[in-house]
């Protein structure tokens, strides 16, 4: 669509700018709010120009947290979130790439059944199986641990399915050439399949990191000890204070900080991410 009509050009840009404004405005408001002192919100109006309390607000939240809401410092919560997001992303990728490898390249009994079982679990997101999963995790004594926070979320039919599709596009001759070159199953996986799936792994990592970072319901259920709180559930906890005004400046600072790491991951891995989604040539 290479059209040289000024009006269409203008329209296209107008739509884009409008879109950006709609998405960016709430973030702007949140950021501005986080730079004001706690008293600036009593009027009920959120100010639209920067305040002078930014260093103070962020400093306090990072190092002290908010004792009145039972909140540990944000640095700890962000660390917990990071552990959780990384473990889930890396764990999901590792498990699903290995299961996809088995399903595509090995002829074992009940291979089709295995594939369909994995595929069917696509229909069961965390929220549906959350009570039985909670029961299992609780019985195993994994409440308030990183393991309990991450392991139940690691199994992934979506990622397995995606890697299966990627492997199916790799010609059989490549595997045969590798066999003649003396590469056994592990070497083939490590030397050929893994590097060839690099872009897909990167794209999936971005998606899964954000998925893990944004988990809300599950950490809320399995953590009762503040030292294992994650930042996303922390935001909600701060807004739920009893018998007093929510401290919007702190809440918004937390929200901004919670947004940063996923944004960073997207920006840093943007090139690989896009390649992984659009690349077809193998």
């Amino acid at each position: 669509m290479v059209e040289k009509r000024p009006f269409l050009n203008f329209l296209a840009h107008a739509v884009l700018v409008l879109g950006v404004l709609i998405v960016a405005f709430p973030i702007y408001v949140a950021f501005i709010a986080s730079t004001h002192g706690p008293t600036d919100f009593l009027s009920g109006l959120i100010p639209l120009t920067p305040g002078d309390n930014m260093v103070n607000t962020y400093g306090k939240m990072m190092t002290d947290g908010m004792a009145s809401a039972g909140m540990p410092p944000l640095s700890l919560q962000m660390f917990n979130s990071l552990i959780m997001a990384l473990t889930i992303a890396i764990g999901k990728i590792a498990i699903s790439i290995i299961s996809a490898y088995a399903i595509v390249y090995f002829r074992f009994p009940f291979r089709g059944l295995a594939f369909w079982l994995i595929f069917i679990t696509l229909m069961l997101p965390v929220e549906v199986r959350i009570l039985p999963t909670y029961h299992v995790v609780a019985s195993l004594g994994m409440l308030d641990t990183y393991a309990g926070l991450t392991i139940p979320l690691i199994a992934s039919a979506t990622a397995t399915f995606l890697f299966r599709q990627v492997f199916l596009t790799i010609p059989d001759e490549l595997m045969e050439a590798a066999r003649i070159d003396g590469a056994g199953p592990l070497k083939f996986f490590w030397d050929i399949l893994l590097p060839m799936s690099r872009n897909n792994i990167a794209a999936l990592f971005v998606i899964l990191f954000i998925y893990g970072w944004n988990q809300y319901l599950w950490p809320l259920l399995v953590t009762t000890d503040p030292s294992h709180y994650t930042i996303v559930m922390g935001i909600k906890r701060m807004a739920d204070v009893v018998d007093s005004q929510p401290q919007w400046n702190y809440i918004m600072a937390t929200a901004i900080l919670a947004m940063l790491p996923p944004v960073l991951v997207v920006i840093l891995m943007q090139k690989l991410f896009v390649k992984g989604l659009i690349e077809t040539e193998k």
Partner: peptide, 28 residues
């Protein structure tokens, strides 16, 4: 296959796409 002391040339060449030509030759 690797122990039969043979080498095969495929119709679609089956070169390893992520390796340089040198690495392709050297891999086996």
């Amino acid at each position: 296959p690797a122990e039969r002391d043979i080498a095969m040339v495929f119709q679609n060449y089956a070169l390893y796409p992520h390796m340089s030509v040198r690495q392709n030759l050297a891999y086996g």
